[in-house]
Design a protein around this nucleic acid. Structure first.
Lengths: 334, 334
DNA sequence: CTGGGGTGCGAAACCGATTTCGCATTGGGC
DNA sequence: GCCCAATGCGAAATCGGTTTCGCACCCCAG
């Protein structure tokens, strides 16, 4: 009969009923130290019968572990980091860890410092820093903590940090190999702003895959911006250039969508005349059971969040950049 | 000089240096009980000087409050509940609360029961149940907890529960009033599956707004599905019917997008000949600085998550359904 | 028979705060 | 001048676990 304030069963209740000391009961439940089989069984039976659930707060206090992971995000609202954050917090939940999420609109030094103090006061067991997916490396804050720090979707400026990133180069290669498998040999690339490293990496992946097949691009890569209009314009220019093209690898799905529009307007059959592959899998994010129009590469951002979250809690963490393999999502455009 | 294992400053350190007892120091820091101004100032000064930060774990343990809110989601992956979850966890972070997120793929009784047990063992201070945005009411689990339970983006089957929902009817009215303000008087409605309550509510909102203006729909509402193709088909049929139409309120942005396509194909100028308004603001979710093509209604799902999260921790909670006001997002289609 | 080492278990310290209760001092009313 | 109440503060209990340390006890080798 627990005389608790909440009426819940304490370890001392279990110990008393099982006729052992508090310490023995604790050792049984935690599997530490040597305990005779008889006692073990007895304590476990009592614990089971009373439906004993250790008070997580007391446990945390005694062990000095909060079972809480800090998550520092830079505008979690942003399009792409959303899935990363979701993947992370869900994975943390699976691992019985709470997430303390601080979303800084701007990563100014002042704000960060305050967040760090908050995290420390809360005794977080680890920290996940979620970037905004852009290329700028964020200042490493690992040294502020004694607990593991993992960076996701944005690298830090310290090479020894553990970083999880999408595999943009792999995405380019995957898209290209898919088109090659479809028998395409005249592949062009229409993409976004060349100042973006993602653009560079995706293109490099394509070139690698082409080279493996002994091929070259059907036309010089056309750079523009990430939006639909840009895709339309680039596709028109590509067609006007007279280059022979039987496939277009697009830097993202917006551009691919623009390409689709131009094809429809010009009577070009997709994928019979021209196959199209995009990147991002927006249709997957957006539509539940909508009709898919594009074949695309999914960068698996949710998985990225999951892996990074699991990494924070992992025993063996390897420094450096980890790239999350993208997947091919088949649609009617290839 | 703290002799701590972690080298951090304890309250007892502050008390000793300030020359007061532990209890006095505690009272000063918490503002409880009466303390002379002199002592108060002295203790605060010492705490400040030592940069004292109370051990959150010890505090939680003593107070029996975990500063953790449970979040039970039903497929957080799903398109729409994502923003709700993000809004919630970010808001919780602002309130210094950790989020323990359990994502159940299926809300079968067995799983739920286990989650509830986990939440209880973790001593959560409150629970947020995030639905999938569909209409089916989920079974109320409020009675399993002694802490506040709030439902977001999906109602429970108990009328006394606190529920936060998007305002679909308001969305319909908002879209319609906007079109009326633009001088449109022949407004048609193309929408999704009539079995969806959201469809019903959005249409009702439109009818209300029209009635206020002394108008009726320009044509009978056309139902279909939520996808682009359906929007195209419905728009073609609408035009073929010969009805005079100067505006179309679409059940969602997919449908609106289909309508745009048809208009472009038929040489109908948007918005000069026909104005178009959608619902969901996908362009806002997806594109960061893309070119907006649609005027749309944003159901403010992120805000919904924020409000619901804040509600769990609020002192005054009012039972029943709370509707989050949608916003109008202007684009070139109206 | 004795000494040494391993085994099983319990007493008590400890984690770091909050909170109750009671004591001493002060002030004010009569 | 006396008594009572209010004020300011501290000793100690409490929250519910984990962990150290040491004590019996048993077994076996010498």
């Amino acid at each position: 009969m627990p005389s608790n304030r909440k009426g819940s069963v304490r370890l001392s209740d279990v110990a008393a009923i099982a006729g052992v000391s508090l310490s023995t009961a604790s050792k049984v439940l935690n599997g530490t130290d040597r305990i005779s089989e008889a006692t073990r069984a007895r304590v476990l039976a009592v614990a089971e019968r009373l439906d004993f659930r250790p008070n997580a707060l007391a446990r945390s206090f005694a062990l000095g572990r909060s079972r809480t992971i800090g998550v520092l995000t830079h505008r979690a609202a942003s399009t792409f980091s959303g899935p990363v954050v979701i993947g992370a917090v869900v994975q943390l939940g699976k691992l019985q860890q709470a997430a303390l999420v601080f979303d800084e609109d701007v990563l100014v030094h002042r704000e960060i410092t305050e967040s760090i103090r908050q995290f420390q006061a809360r005794q977080i067991d680890g920290l996940l820093v979620v970037g905004d997916g852009h290329e700028r490396r964020s200042p490493s804050i690992t040294h502020h903590f004694t607990v593991p720090v993992t960076y996701a979707f944005g690298a830090s400026d310290h090479p020894e940090d553990v970083v999880y990133l999408p595999d943009n180069e792999g995405a380019g290669a995957l898209a290209t190999r898919h088109l090659l498998e479809r028998g395409r040999t005249h592949i062009a690339h229409l993409t976004g702003n060349p100042s973006s490293i993602a653009v560079d990496l995706r293109e490099r992946g394509m070139l690698t895959a082409l080279k493996e097949a002994g091929l070259r691009p059907a036309a010089p890569t056309r750079y523009g911006s990430w939006i639909e209009d840009s895709g339309e314009q680039a596709m028109r220019e590509l067609l006007d250039s007279g280059a022979k093209v039987d496939a277009v690898f697009c830097g993202n799905d917006h551009i691919a969508r623009g390409v689709l529009t131009v094809c429809a307007a010009k009577g070009i059959r997709v994928p019979d005349d021209v196959a199209i592959v995009g990147v991002d899998n927006w249709e997957g994010i957006i539509v539940d059971q909508g009709v898919r129009r594009l074949t695309t590469i999914d960068l698996e951002l949710r998985t990225l969040g999951q892996l990074a979250a699991a990494d924070v809690l992992a025993a063996d963490r390897t420094p450096g950049e980890h790239h999350v393999p993208p997947t091919l999502v088949l649609g009617p455009s290839s």
